[in-house]
Write a protein that binds this DNA or RNA. Sequence first.
DNA 1: CTGTCATGTCAACAACACTGACGTATTTCC
DNA 2: GGAAATACGTCAGTGTTGTTGACATGACAG
Lengths: 170, 170
Amino acid sequence: MASDSTAPAGRSLLFLTDDQLRKGIEAMFFAYRGFTADPDRILAEKSYGRAHHRAIHFIHRSPGTTVNNLLSILGVTKQSLNRVLRTLIADGLVSSTVGDRDRRERHLHLTAEGAALERSLSDAQRERMRAAYRAAGPAAVAGFREVLEAMMDAEMRRQYQSLVDQPDGR
Amino acid sequence: MASDSTAPAGRSLLFLTDDQLRKGIEAMFFAYRGFTADPDRILAEKSYGRAHHRAIHFIHRSPGTTVNNLLSILGVTKQSLNRVLRTLIADGLVSSTVGDRDRRERHLHLTAEGAALERSLSDAQRERMRAAYRAAGPAAVAGFREVLEAMMDAEMRRQYQSLVDQPDGR
DNA sequence: CTGTCATGTCAACAACACTGACGTATTTCC
DNA sequence: GGAAATACGTCAGTGTTGTTGACATGACAG
């Protein structure tokens, strides 16, 4: 809207121009490219993709998680996840063990080798995040997280919160 | 923040725990899903994908841009872009005209129909961004943008800046 | 025992990315 | 004027990641 340039100054708390919003949209686009760039490079060497990274990340985060659980976090079909999981198990990065209480469930864990890959992936990603956080400062970081959380769907935010509340345990 | 409690208080400007960084990483993952959810729904109805959205967005942003220009912004191969561009031109959403100064170049514009789709896509995405911005407040928004910009590669940040500095002109 | 659940798998398909190679038109440079 | 570089388009092949639909097995629950 061209008429946004005439926006009253006193309403800045609530009045958001299309231009402001567009800049946020474009920032998300380019930032996400940077966000995935480093892991992508590492994964390409081992002929894995982002799907493998996501599976590894969330298995690391919730050791012993079930397939169904992972399915709902990743938001993909079981066929799609299974293809990835199958290669990870075949390659010895992930172990799948029958459940004790419910023997239908399979509990997923990273093997030593899987944990090593997870470490190298998250090291790379954390380094970039650390650099960005340092450059922007603590106040900016708080705002960054607030906006991201507000951008999620309600259901995703629920999953995010329950994940984030438990420490990494590394 | 569980392990954050062990962080030395006086170094908070520079000391970033793995836990803090991991939360940022997971926030990016879930937020980006929300970020693309609304346009994805609209595009699915018309059997277009994210690649079409990106092309339409940047053609709208830089009317008359050349194919090479778009290529470097999107960071894909020309074969990949061409597949998308071909369908958009065939469907009458994008026009391609021979350059005046350099007749090898093709200048890309949105047709009326293309502009209408762009509008409906960006309306949806802007609505989500607006809601997130409102929920988080102006200080958070500034921090959000700062961190995102710091997360980009130098080359991407250059492209982002030159784009963002020109208004939408809507 | 029957119904439901968790999981795994097969097949087919589509979107979107890639590499490599080739062709055409045009511009630039020597 | 002719060679080289540039801009674009296209063909063919491949790989990852997602989808639907169907089916099988084993395990739990009423």
